Simulated scan of single mutants.
Amino acid sequence: MKLLVVSDSHHERDCLIHLKEKYEGEVDAMIHCGDSELEKDDPAIQGFHTVRGNCDFGSDFPNDWVGEVDGYRVFTTHGHLYNIKMTLMNLRYRARELNADFVFFGHSHELGVDMLDNTIILNPGSISLPRGRIHEKTYALIDATDDGVKVRFMTIDDKELTDLTQTFPLVKNN
């Protein structure tokens, strides 16, 4: 299974169009963790499983998206409704309830990944307004195989941040 995860594009359409052109048909799903600030019918966001962020006013996007991708259960949210700037515990509890294999979220604009309770919890950073120690505009690529789950953070110009690449054991929760 291959996934592309992006967040917090904040009305920047060109980066989403670029990602679609590069990865559509190459990944099993493209996921946007909210704050696109685009309407649901905007061609730039078409093809992404998209959730509503705190800056997506009047949006038709759901607050959460739970779906199956190649047999894996994926839980996506923006994060503001789970208080992610204070703690990841709320996400962990919700992931357990859903038997999620992956949790994707945004909101803080700071990239990061960890495995908690056999669930990979990932923030791809922001594709337009990064914060924290990584100043690059980023997105994430996830590749799950029988050997494990490889997570790569990529810059907006498609360069891998190799020092941040991580591999986790493969554990299915559902």
Rank of each mutant, 00 (worst) to 15 (best):
L141H: 00
H107P: 04
F48S: 02
T119Q: 01
R131K: 15
H49L: 09
I156K: 08
H109C: 10
T77E: 01
E97Y: 01
F75V: 00
G58T: 11
L141N: 00
S126I: 10
L116K: 06
H49C: 10
F104A: 02
G79N: 13
P62A: 13
L38D: 03
G125P: 06
E97H: 01
A95R: 00
R152Y: 09
T76N: 12
T76E: 07
E136Q: 15
M154P: 11
F153S: 06
A144L: 04
D64W: 09
F153K: 04
E136K: 15
I120W: 01
Y93H: 01
W65Q: 04
M89W: 10
L81T: 07
L38S: 08
G47P: 15
A100K: 01
E68D: 14
L129V: 08
F48D: 00
N83V: 07
H107S: 07
H49D: 07
Y139I: 03
L116Y: 04
I120E: 10
L88N: 08
L91K: 04
G79C: 12
T155Y: 11
R73G: 02
E110R: 11
K159A: 15
R152L: 12
H135T: 13
P124L: 04
L161K: 15
V69T: 11
T138V: 05
A140K: 00
M115K: 12
M86Y: 14
F104M: 02
A44L: 03
E110H: 05
R73A: 03
E39M: 08
H109S: 11
